[in-house]
Amino acid sequence: MYAAFKKTFSKDHLDLVLQTSEDHETRIVEFPGRWMTQDELQELREALISIASKTLARGSLTYGVFKADGSGLRDTVITLIRDRYSGQPIAFNALAVMEVAHGSATATVLHLGLVMVDPGQRSRGLSWVLYGLTCLLFFLRNQLRPFWISNVTQVPAIVGMVAETFSAVYPQPDDRSRRSIEHLLLAREIMANHRHVFGVGAEAEFDEACFVIGNAYTGGSDDLKKSFDVAQKHRDEKYNSFCKDSLDYERGDDFLQIGRMDIFASKDYLMKSVPRRSVLAIVAAAFFISLQRVLLPIIYWFDTSRPWRRLRARNT
């Protein structure tokens, strides 16, 4: 594990391998389309396609990481889980990093993106890795500064997971859910300029009152459309009822959820979502990432013996 962390220190991007359970190894790769060789990119795409093909017809998805030209991997963070013994890819999450106009500034929004799991590996406790782990590591790399997240889904289990994992999530069924002006401005900007990230076509309509995208499955994500009966349910019935009452599954509606990753969300994630047997590995990853982002720049600054790209000491 130390060698894997050490390898990341010389890079401007995150490329981290963790043993997240006795049977699973997880690799988190930031912006692979910007630095991987063509052979490495092809190998990564084939791993993602092999997982997707277990659920959908090969080639049925045409947006995001499945774009033939590979452009969808330039602004994406891939979380890829493999079986430790066979090396077989079994699940992935593709998180898109969006730079969204927010007032007079720009906000970084981490879109939770497409999650796919080999049907034979479902109910194996992978959700905490696929949804929260990468967000936690980005929060640490961001020096504990909060950032916005977005999510587009019609699946009750995911609606509930997002509502329970992140802070200030809208929409959700609880009374504590409030649509702020920040939620609204971010949603407008995302729907105006970033629909391609989650495969929603221009003809889809957005209801600003309830954050429902009507007729959402027309922009390359068509084969992800589900009926309510097929969509995975949450253990808390309130999320199932919320989706059933708010979404038209025959038309193909989605929620656009917007929330924040902050210190409260990260604490709850570590205490409630991460299995106890995996906490040590996550703490180790957090330590090394914090070291890279906070302590190493100080060391580099005082080292005049070699350049460190943008961060280097000045000879006087």
Rank of each mutant, 00 (worst) to 15 (best):
A3H: 12
K6P: 00
K7G: 11
F9M: 14
Q19T: 06
D23Y: 06
H24D: 11
H24E: 08
R27G: 00
R27M: 00
I28V: 11
I28F: 02
R34D: 00
W35I: 03
W35H: 13
Q38E: 10
D39V: 07
L44V: 09
I51L: 01
S53F: 00
T55C: 11
L56R: 05
L56I: 00
A57V: 08
R58N: 11
G59K: 03
R74F: 00
I78G: 09
T79Y: 08
D83Q: 05
D83V: 05
S86G: 10
Q88M: 11
I90G: 04
A91E: 04
A96M: 13
E99C: 09
A101L: 12
T106E: 12
M116S: 05
M116A: 15
R122H: 00
Y131K: 11
T134Y: 05
L136W: 13
L136T: 03
R141Q: 08
R145S: 10
F147R: 08
F147W: 10
W148E: 04
V152M: 12
V152F: 08
I158Y: 05
V159K: 11
A163G: 13
A163E: 06
S167E: 14
S167V: 13
P171Y: 12
D174H: 13
S177K: 02
R178I: 15
E182M: 08
L186V: 08
E189R: 08
H194V: 11
A202Y: 01
A202W: 00
E205F: 03
F211V: 05
I213C: 05
A216S: 11
Y217G: 02
G220P: 09
D223A: 15
K226F: 06
D229V: 09
H234T: 14
E237P: 07
K238S: 09
C243Q: 08
G252S: 02
L256H: 07
S266G: 04
Y269F: 14
L270I: 14
M271R: 15
M271W: 04
S273W: 12
S273I: 00
S278N: 10
S278C: 07
L280E: 08
L280H: 07
A281R: 11
A285I: 10
R293Y: 10
W301C: 12
W301H: 13
F302I: 03
S305N: 15
W308L: 02
R309C: 04
A313T: 02
